[in-house]
Write a protein that binds this DNA or RNA. Sequence first.
DNA 1: ACCTTTCTACCGACCGGTCGTTAGATGCAC
DNA 2: GTGCATCTAACGACCGGTCGGTAGAAAGGT
Lengths: 216, 216
Amino acid sequence: MPSGHMKETIKSVAIDLFFKKGYFATSISDLARGSGIQKASIYYHYASKEELLFHILENTMDDLTACLKTNLENVAGVEERMRAAVRSHVRFHLERQKENFIANSELRGLTSEHYQDIVKKRDRYERIFQELIREGSDAGVFAPGDVKILSYAILTLCTAGATWFKPSGRLTIDEIALIYENFIINGLKMGTIDSDASNLKNGRTVPLENKKYNVK
Amino acid sequence: MPSGHMKETIKSVAIDLFFKKGYFATSISDLARGSGIQKASIYYHYASKEELLFHILENTMDDLTACLKTNLENVAGVEERMRAAVRSHVRFHLERQKENFIANSELRGLTSEHYQDIVKKRDRYERIFQELIREGSDAGVFAPGDVKILSYAILTLCTAGATWFKPSGRLTIDEIALIYENFIINGLKMGTIDSDASNLKNGRTVPLENKKYNVK
DNA sequence: ACCTTTCTACCGACCGGTCGTTAGATGCAC
DNA sequence: GTGCATCTAACGACCGGTCGGTAGAAAGGT
């Protein structure tokens, strides 16, 4: 089971357990047990539990961005580039599901400095998509729309796959990637996306927090 | 700030803190401090921390479903019904952002019995959307596609709003709801959604977990 | 009206247990 | 014997939860 370096073993055990039980619910003892060492020995490799988490998240974010950049190399045309970007994003999230799940659910375990590091990396990644949307919109290929909201939509859509995807499931990663790719390109292309909310005709349709449900 | 009953005060303090710091990071002492009582007094109103969490989640899920059902009453036509459903979903998640965020991130805090209760409620809710997609697809209004994947896509897309939405932000809830509504209807309507993955032409484009990045 | 009992809502003190972390000794490869 | 990797042992902090008790309002009998 151990793959040479104990530091890597600990890391991969951590990825497993953080994914399965969550960061806070996973104790150093759990990590030690899973790695086959005593819990004090963890501290020879990592300064703290939080540093271990940060290490995982940082690696994931760096690989995610590197992956996207590589997959965009030599791809021409804004639609094809967006397709490639979505494909890259979906595949990365499904192939490395556990790490991505952690990256999206355990940010609160970080110190504020580390948190900001990760958010900065995430923002840089998002900006690549936003730039693509803007390009496509300028070129008339995509409908004009709110770039930020659309980028969030695209990314969270694909990211969500990491929460429900089962490698043993009905569909392969490539099939899922294609479904998303088409869904998104479709949503972006047509001209019906606008922010004209003038035709909204409604009062409150949602119950307030902690209030009993009442409509109209 | 306290609204009559202490039980309600505790609940709303819990919603605030679970949203801000997370369920595990919020201690009973935190809840007591926020509610202005001693921590032992919390147990007069709730049997345990977990029961309090369950109480919040159960309420939220029940209201979510009730809200959808009401908003679908007297709406005819499958496209209009889907639009109404998306609108209901987005609005509920943005208006009651904190509770919904908790409901999507703190399920792991539940006992397995309570967890299954909530998942059952969530599945019932999802099935309403899946039924809508199937109807629309049968009627030829929506393109045929994988019903489950599409329903996940729709729901997670809208749900994600609860993670980044700022009430003081640029766009109103209704504007965001409209953007999503159009994006989704668009994605569903066109005929390009299929699972024909026969034209996939690629090797590995994603680095493996814990492996250095390498393409092709 | 009076006294007694019950119930509600809370408090202060405390428990066993687990947590992340540290200090210092030990084995082992070179 | 030098240094790396791991060990045993322990630390203080804090956790969720329990306990016995209590002030005060309400209920009930006479």
